[in-house]
C-alpha cells in the first residue's frame, strides 16, 4: 500500500511538472492580456512534433532538438500575436472573437500536423533508459529528467518576472496597463513578449509530454483542459499559484489513475473543477472575485 501511494505520488510529480509548464504560459497570458489563448494546446502539440522532427531528422541530438523547439515556438508565439490576437484586441466583442480565433488557430495547427505528419501515433525514442530502484519503488530516468527539467524552466520564468527588466515590465502591465504606459512601457511589445513566452512554455511542456506519451495531432487538448483547471485553482493570473496548483492536480490525477482507474481520472477532475468554480472561484491564492 505504501509503495503504491509512493509510486502514484512520483507519477503525480511527473504529471505535475508537465502540467505546470503547460499552465504557466496560459496563466501569464491571462494575467497580462486578460485573454484566454485556446491555441495554447496547439503549441503543446507543436512542441512535441518539433522535437520529434529534430530527433528523427537531425541525428538524434536531444539538446539541439530541444533548443530548436524553444526557438520555433517562441517565434511562432510572435506570429500568433501579430496575426491573430493583436488585430482583435480592444474591439467590442473581443473576448468572444479572440476565443473563436484562437480556437480556429488550434484547429489550423492540428490539421497542419495531420497534413504534414499524418494522423498516426508517433513516439519519441527514449532520452535515457534504465531506472533507479529504492526498495519497492522504482523511478525511471526519463521521469527523473522531467522532474528536473520543469523546475529549471519554472524558476527561470519566476526569475525573469521578478528580477529582469523586461520581466518587471510584464508584471507592471499585468497590474495596471495605463500606469505602465505612463512610465514609458510599450504595452504592445510586452503583449507580444508575453504571448511568445507562453508559447515557449507550451512548447517545452509538449516536449516533456511527447517523451512519455504518444504523439498525436490532438494531444494538446487534454493538457490544455487540465491547465484551465490549474489556472483557476492557482487564482487566475498568479504564476506562483499556478505552479502549486499544477503539482496538486498532478498528484490528484495520478492517485485517481492509480486507485480508481485510468478512465475516471478525467471525469473526477472535471467534477472537482466544477465544485471549485462554484465554491471557490478565486482559487487557492487568488483574491476574492
Amino acid at each position: 500500500m505504501f509503495s503504491d501511494i509512493a509510486s502514484a505520488i512520483i507519477i503525480g510529480l511527473v504529471l505535475g511538472s508537465m502540467y505546470a509548464l503547460a499552465a504557466v504560459g496560459l496563466t501569464l497570458v491571462w494575467g497580462v492580456l486578460k485573454i484566454l489563448n485556446f491555441a495554447h494546446g496547439g503549441f503543446i502539440t507543436l512542441g512535441a512534433y518539433f522535437v520529434w522532427v529534430g530527433i528523427t531528422f537531425l541525428g538524434g541530438n536531444y539538446v539541439i532538438s530541444f533548443l530548436l523547439v524553444m526557438g520555433l515556438t517562441f517565434l511562432l508565439g510572435f506570429v500568433l500575436n501579430a496575426g491573430v490576437i493583436r488585430p482583435l484586441q480592444g474591439r467590442p466583442e473581443s473576448e468572444t472573437n479572440i476565443f473563436i480565433a484562437t480556437l480556429a488557430t488550434s484547429i489550423i495547427i492540428e490539421n497542419l500536423i495531420i497534413v504534414g505528419f499524418g494522423g498516426r501515433y508517433k513516439s519519441i525514442p527514449e532520452m535515457a533508459s534504465g531506472s533507479l530502484t529504492l526498495g519497492s519503488i522504482s523511478i525511471n530516468f526519463q521521469q527523473m529528467i522531467i522532474m528536473a527539467v520543469a523546475p529549471v524552466f519554472l524558476v527561470g520564468l519566476m526569475y525573469y518576472l521578478k528580477k529582469m527588466k523586461s520581466g518587471m515590465a510584464v508584471r507592471a502591465v499585468a497590474q495596471d496597463a495605463d500606469g505602465a504606459a505612463i512610465v514609458g512601457i510599450d504595452s504592445e511589445r510586452v503583449y507580444s513578449y508575453t504571448i511568445a513566452i507562453g508559447a515557449l512554455m507550451a512548447g517545452v511542456a509538449g516536449v516533456l509530454l511527447g517523451v512519455i506519451f504518444y504523439l498525436s495531432p490532438g494531444m494538446g487538448g487534454d493538457p490544455l483542459v487540465r491547465a484551465l483547471f490549474i489556472m483557476v485553482l492557482g487564482g487566475m493570473g498568479s504564476v506562483k499559484g499556478t505552479i502549486y496548483g499544477a503539482y496538486i492536480i498532478g498528484i490528484i490525477d495520478a492517485l485517481a489513475r492509480y486507485f480508481i482507474g485510468m478512465f475516471w481520472a478525467s471525469p473526477i477532475l472535471f467534477v472537482m473543477f466544477i465544485l471549485l468554480l462554484l465554491l471557490r472561484p478565486q482559487g487557492l491564492f487568488g483574491v476574492k472575485v
Binding site: 488585430p87 472573437n97 473563436i100 480565433a101
Partner: peptide, 18 residues
C-alpha cells in the same frame, strides 16, 4: 487542407468584418 483554409478564413472574417 479544408480545415486549414476554413480556420484561416474564420480568422480573416473576424478581423475584417467584426
Amino acid at each position: 487542407f479544408r480545415n486549414i483554409v476554413f480556420g484561416l478564413l474564420m480568422i480573416l472574417i473576424l478581423i475584417f468584418m467584426p
